[in-house]
Write a protein that binds this DNA or RNA. Sequence first.
DNA 1: ATTGACATTGACGCAACGTAATCGTGTAAT
DNA 2: ATTACACGATTACGTTGCGTCAATGTCAAT
Lengths: 255, 255
Amino acid sequence: MEYTVQKLGQLAGVSTRTLRYYDEIGILKPARINSSGYRIYGQSEVDRLQQILFFRELGVSLESIKQIINAPTFDSAKAMIEHREKLLEKRKQLDTLIFNVEKSIDVIGGKIMMTDKEKFEGFKQKLVDDNEKKYGKEVRDKYGEEVVNKSNNRVKGMSPEEYEEITRLGDEVLETLHIAFKTGDPAGELAQQAAELHRKWLSFYWDSYTKEAHAGIAQMYVDDERFTAYYDDKQPGTAEFLRDAVFIYTGINVK
Amino acid sequence: MEYTVQKLGQLAGVSTRTLRYYDEIGILKPARINSSGYRIYGQSEVDRLQQILFFRELGVSLESIKQIINAPTFDSAKAMIEHREKLLEKRKQLDTLIFNVEKSIDVIGGKIMMTDKEKFEGFKQKLVDDNEKKYGKEVRDKYGEEVVNKSNNRVKGMSPEEYEEITRLGDEVLETLHIAFKTGDPAGELAQQAAELHRKWLSFYWDSYTKEAHAGIAQMYVDDERFTAYYDDKQPGTAEFLRDAVFIYTGINVK
DNA sequence: ATTGACATTGACGCAACGTAATCGTGTAAT
DNA sequence: ATTACACGATTACGTTGCGTCAATGTCAAT
């Protein structure tokens, strides 16, 4: 069977422009050109296009596809596995994006107010660099008091709805934490999820979140018996488990 | 405080090129131009840039941002909620993408073979429409026998490594399932994760995965006492729980 | 006076096509 | 045979959000 641009386009569900473009960049050349200069595609081109679309659908760039299908002994499985890694990271990014949008909805809704200083802080994650690592050791003492005071002030100004939401989140943290605790792995998915929830929960109390402060608080839970009692309620060792999870989550070890 | 391009750039964490560009497209113009033609930004420009970066971070296009911050009575909350919808859809797409990549890894690995006909079908997901829903009811009877036979043939041709991998996956399914069972919610994240793992596991045995078949198998686990016994081993009711989770996961109810 | 850091304005490049604009062909109907 | 019209071709600009030269002017310090 032979196809013109439009026929092939309809068969495969792509525009004629796309086929021309693929010809242009040398990823799919027609089998031959007829006397009128028309592009004529044959069976092998159909198959090749099929392969191209397959990879394209998976989000692989045309340049990469070119390499893939041109390589004589291409290890496509390996490439796919690598590609999957990329996608998983993309999804992670998207998840934090969604989280931020949701937070911003609250901000705009007036539930959370931001100070002028906080404004830029959020965007400068890169700047949370070595310079700040130095504070790591002192962060517990430093944040210990400060945060408690801040938080108290925070809570006073909350609406009933906000309070409700926070309570729910807090419960969710505990729930996830207890399930995660059974796995025994603070680096596991569940434990990291608990750490994430804990961060969300904290964000309700804090003007600005920093990894350092988060790690500091987690350590505080272990050191301060009032907090330890709260988290170890059902399962002794939970506070420590949470701390370890948060250390991994934040990538910061305060100890 | 007044800033030159570089100062502002450092403050906000963007390149000078970006600031020039923002000036060019009229989204952020400097407060004034000094005698040497330098762009000088003031406090209000800092704030404006802050807002721009805020929305940009959320993945909003500059064009949209322009509209947003220029509108006198812009309902940013509404815009954010809409934007969240878009992001959630994006994530959905990404998830199916990841699913397909994973499937393709199996395909490439030779675990699954595709017929020529199937090849193009894959890209025409749109065609997965009502026409196929009709098979839903009959799927259990249909797949019940077929799958078991197929699977047996499948297993015979497996390598030790493959078998090892499958066993591991199978264990993971059980593990997740049992944790999820404690939450009591088949629609919850854990249960859905279990359903997903179960799908992966199945994909090792099946030539081609379909939601209908998946749902059918899940129901079969409940109906066939051999399977029920296996899944209910530690916790009675687990088979039913898995079935419910899979029904939700696939969006198909076979009952 | 020279140097080096920082400023300016172009202008091209990128990915993967969409979208005209202009013109030649194939074919069916008049 | 002519006309109409669908389909083919090529050329080339537009899209997004800047990165990256290139050429050139300015400021502050040595």
